[in-house]
């Protein structure tokens, strides 16, 4: 997520709007954005409704056995179709800004 903030201008040039989604409440996300200096959109899915719809639920994956999202990235085009995705098998390894900008070439 730090990488996305650092490449925000490149992403905007490609017409890509980053949107981060987690089970954190709006206040928790706001605190994270303030602390880390993130300026893109952060959405809150406390009941994991959208996370379930994307089949990304990691049951009891969080502290206190809470259901959370597994890490994943998608590029969705203007008509709402997935053009690129990255489902990591290791939560230490996330898509790099270079991977994402390369994926953005697949957007119409």
């Amino acid at each position: 997520m730090r990488g996305i903030q650092n490449s925000l201008s490149e992403l905007e040039r490609e017409g890509v709007r980053p949107v981060a989604i987690s089970v954190d409440t709006p206040d928790e996300s706001a605190a994270l954005c303030r602390k880390a200096g993130y300026t893109y959109t952060f959405l809150s899915d406390p009941n994991a409704d959208a996370i379930r719809r994307y089949d990304l639920l990691h049951q009891r994956g969080g502290p206190d056995e809470k259901d959370i999202a597994r890490p994943a990235e998608f590029l969705v085009d203007a008509s709402g179709v997935v053009r690129w995705r990255n489902l990591t098998e290791d939560l230490r390894k996330r898509a790099t800004p270079e991977d994402i900008l390369q994926g953005a070439q697949l957007l119409q």
């Binding site: 997520m1 996305i4 201008s9 992403l11 905007e12 490609e14 017409g15 890509v16 709007r17 980053p18 949107v19 981060a20 989604i21 987690s22 089970v23 954190d24 928790e28 605190a31 994270l32 602390k35 880390a36 996370i51 994307y54 990304l56 990691h58 994956g61 969080g62 502290p63 959370i68 999202a69 597994r70 890490p71 994943a72 990235e73 998608f74 590029l75 969705v76 085009d77 203007a78 053009r83 939560l91 994402i100 953005a104 957007l107 119409q108």
Partner: peptide, 22 residues
Amino acid sequence: PMPGMEGQKPRGLLLVFYRGYW
């Protein structure tokens, strides 16, 4: 419209799902 895109619509969204708890 996106910021920094002079009123243009985005070509796409980058959805980043993350674990949370920061």
